[in-house]
Simulated scan of single mutants.
Amino acid sequence: MALFFLVLTFVLHLLFMNAMLGSAIMAFICELRGKKAGPSKDISTKLPYTIAFTVNLGVAPLLFLQVLYGQFIYVSSVLMAGFWLAVIGLIIMLYYSAYIYDFRFEKMPGARTFFIGLTAILGLIVAFLFTNNMTLMLRPETWQEYFGNRSGTLLNLNDPTLWPRYLHFIVASIAVGGLFQAVLAKMRKTLPDRQYKIDHGMRWFTIATVVQILVGFWFLISLPREVMLSFMGGDAPNTVIFILGLAVAAVSLIFGITRRVLPATAATIATVLFMAIVRDLVRTEFLKPVFHPSDLKVAAQYSPMIVFLIVLVLGLGIMAYMLHLAADSGKEAK
């Protein structure tokens, strides 16, 4: 049950995180290239929302990860404690920078590039630190490096999967960010330059998806041989889920090329779901020699789970209602 909620809540977090980081990168590049303010202005008004949802929806999967893999994530977090604790400050700075970019968009045109650039760069740093922790927890054999560096500044830089895994998430965020902008434009019938913004977002989505597939194969071949082969016929369930993920990714690319926004969105959500499952399977394969979640002793406590489900449903409902109010008030269209 905990594994199910780990994947579910991680998918929700991932969708908002990708929309947030990808949109920030898009806006930064548009500002650098001196593009007209339309796409950047639209992005500026969405960033505070997406950051808030990203942070809040990131709590649950982290807690479920600690429940299932506590002895691994705690150790890796301690090994890079200095960087891990810095994430809090980096996110606060990111939030402030995004708010300044939004609320001072018209008043500080000369500083827009700086603040959206700062937002994007801080987001990239946070993502890099998370990738380090999530990979370091999978390599207990490297933890002895602590005895040579007890300062809490260890990073997993020698791991061959670190960079392809990191880029796999970053390029995916650009794809989802482009799709997010296209979806918002599609939903607003009276938006100025509506078709241009739809095409602009879908173009980002399509190009990034092509790159994402290539980076995904790099990530695959960077895995240890036994882990990689488990997704290439060595393990039937792993292989089937991996192939399904590739299939829906290809479908989303086709929809992107043909500019079919809503079908591309559905295919992308399915792709994120399958890839989140694959990510969990990769973690399981890495840790198989020393641990499996089924090794944990289960003491059923249903009341906390019921409370969690109630709060989760209420929270998602309140989030949807808040977005509805924001849209109705016209704040997002300012």
Rank of each mutant, 00 (worst) to 15 (best):
H168W: 01
M26E: 01
F128I: 00
A320K: 14
L62N: 13
G110Q: 04
Q181V: 08
I92F: 14
K107P: 01
Y196T: 05
V183C: 08
L323H: 06
Q301C: 00
F10S: 13
V282R: 10
I88S: 07
R225P: 01
S230A: 14
G110K: 05
L223V: 06
Y99E: 07
A185E: 08
I100F: 12
S151A: 10
A300Y: 10
F105T: 03
M93H: 00
D328G: 15
P289H: 01
I318A: 15
A24H: 08
G177Q: 04
L296R: 02
F128M: 09
Q301F: 07
T54L: 05
F308N: 10
L21A: 07
F242T: 11
M202L: 10
D328L: 15
F274N: 12
A185S: 07
L62C: 11
L136W: 04
F274C: 13
K331D: 07
G58F: 15
F231N: 15
F255G: 03
F4I: 09
R283P: 01
F274Q: 10
I310S: 12
A37E: 11
L253G: 09
K107V: 04
D102Q: 15
L316E: 02
V176L: 12
S303A: 13
L68Q: 08
V67M: 10
I221Q: 11
M232T: 12
M20G: 02
A19D: 07
D295T: 07
A270C: 05
P304T: 00
A276N: 09
K36H: 11
L32F: 10
L154H: 08
A127L: 12
A250L: 15
A299N: 09
K189C: 15
F217M: 14
G233L: 02
V67S: 10
R194M: 01
G82L: 02
S40N: 02
G110C: 05
T258E: 06
F231P: 10
M305R: 14
W84D: 00
G148E: 12
L47K: 04
D328N: 10
P160H: 05
A24W: 01
L21S: 04
H200L: 13
V75N: 11
R188S: 15
L162N: 05
H292F: 07
S77N: 12
L246S: 06
K46P: 03
L6R: 15
T206W: 06
M275H: 08
I116D: 02
I198A: 04
S303E: 09
F53S: 14
L162P: 02
G22H: 05
A208Q: 01
T268H: 04
W143M: 03
A120P: 00
K35L: 06
V211A: 14
R112P: 11
V211K: 01
F130P: 07
A60D: 00
Y49E: 13
T153P: 00
T54R: 05
I277V: 14
V126R: 04
L262A: 06
T284Y: 11
I221G: 04
R260F: 05
I254Q: 05
L281S: 03
L262H: 03
L32H: 14
F130A: 03
N133H: 07
R165F: 07
S76N: 03
T113L: 07
E226N: 13
F147D: 02
T45D: 00
A81V: 13
L47N: 01
P192G: 04
K41L: 11
F10I: 00
A86I: 14
R225V: 15
M80G: 12
F147Q: 01
V183Y: 12
